Simulated scan of single mutants.
Amino acid sequence: MDSDEAKADRSLYGLRYWTTLTMQEECGQLLLIMTCCLRRIDSNYKSGMCESCKHFYTKDIVFEADGDVKIWWFPRVFSQSHFGDRTAGSNACTLIVLLVAYKCYESSIKIEEFINEQLPSDKLINAFAESIIEGNEIHEKLLKSGCLVHINLTVPEAMIAAGKNMRCLTEWKSLVYMMDMRDSLHNELTEQLNEWNRRPPERCGSDLFIVLIAENRSVLFIFQKDLGLITMVDSHQHLPYGAVLAQVPQNRLSSICHWYHNVFLKFYGVSPDCYELSYLYFKRFEYGEMAAG
């Protein structure tokens, strides 16, 4: 039987699953993490992961500097295939990166420069965790309903599947390249970024978000011009690590392109010769426009 206090907490936060705070073993801790994240999904609870959950997922996080690239490697349990005690793997990466983009936009998250021994902001870690949980849930519902033509969603398919949160999201460009990513990614990104800076879209109300898809894996590049930084978000596991965040100054774009190509070589044993870049932003609407249409 639940205590009166437990019932009150469950009622207040709308927990989909309930687990006691006295669980100390790893399996119990994982269930607690899942509950904490689902609590926000179900009831719009705004505090993200509790301190216990945050400690569990960041206690083994590893900082690395590779030239100009600053990297945070999360533990294996913090990845789309394992977060929340998953055992079945995940193909929800396109959904996850779009949700990260939305949460950064909706919460006005500014991603400051990564510094050794100083974890990324709570807001960013919470947004990442929630996006993994939500993205996996949406993908599983699509699988069970038989709505998926292919198990890996395209960007337009993921925008539709993510629902009303994406109605402000606009695709500026989407380009497919049948060429070696190692030799071309930096030049192609630079060309489009220069055009974005010269002629930004009318009523652009956000930073620029770029989804890179290669070898059926989607990652997100966040260009925050006012901070002069580029941050990459990758929810996949990279054994022995889990997800990864990487960052460079904007004038060192070539460094993160080279580093990410090496991620494919080191962790997956491939060198992509075909990839897609989708350039996205959140459109600024005038008062009343969203309600009207």
Rank of each mutant, 00 (worst) to 15 (best):
D2W: 10
D2G: 03
S3Y: 01
D4S: 07
K7H: 07
R10K: 12
R16T: 13
Y17H: 01
M23H: 12
M23K: 15
E25P: 04
L31D: 12
I33M: 12
T35W: 00
R39V: 00
R39E: 12
R40H: 05
N44Y: 11
Y45L: 03
M49E: 02
C50R: 05
E51P: 02
H55N: 14
H55T: 09
T58V: 01
I61A: 15
I61G: 09
V62W: 11
V62S: 11
A65E: 15
D66I: 05
D66H: 13
F74N: 12
F78S: 09
S79T: 10
S79H: 08
H82M: 05
F83V: 07
F83Q: 07
F83H: 07
D85I: 00
D85S: 11
R86C: 01
T87N: 08
T87Q: 07
T87I: 04
G89S: 10
A92P: 07
V100K: 02
S107I: 00
I111C: 00
I111Q: 02
E112I: 00
N116H: 12
N116Y: 01
E117A: 02
Q118C: 04
L119V: 08
N126G: 06
A127K: 01
A129L: 06
S131P: 02
G135P: 03
E137V: 06
E137Q: 14
I138A: 09
H139V: 01
E140P: 00
S145Y: 00
G146P: 07
L148P: 05
I160T: 15
I160N: 09
A161P: 09
N165K: 13
M166H: 05
T170M: 04
D180W: 06
D180I: 00
M181D: 05
M181Y: 02
D183N: 07
T190D: 15
E195D: 14
W196I: 04
E202R: 11
G205A: 04
S206G: 09
S206Y: 02
F209P: 04
V211H: 02
V211F: 04
Q224R: 03
Q224C: 04
D226S: 10
L229C: 04
M232A: 06
H236V: 09
H236F: 12
P240M: 06
A243G: 15
A243F: 00
A243Q: 10
L245S: 03
L245M: 06
Q247F: 02
P249K: 05
R252W: 01
R252P: 00
C257K: 05
C257S: 13
H258M: 05
Y260N: 11
V263N: 13
F264I: 03
L265C: 10
Y268R: 14
V270I: 13
P272M: 03
P272D: 07
P272G: 10
C274R: 15
F282H: 04
K283V: 05
K283E: 14
F285Y: 09
E289T: 01
E289N: 08
E289D: 13
M290K: 12
M290N: 06
A291K: 15
A292D: 15
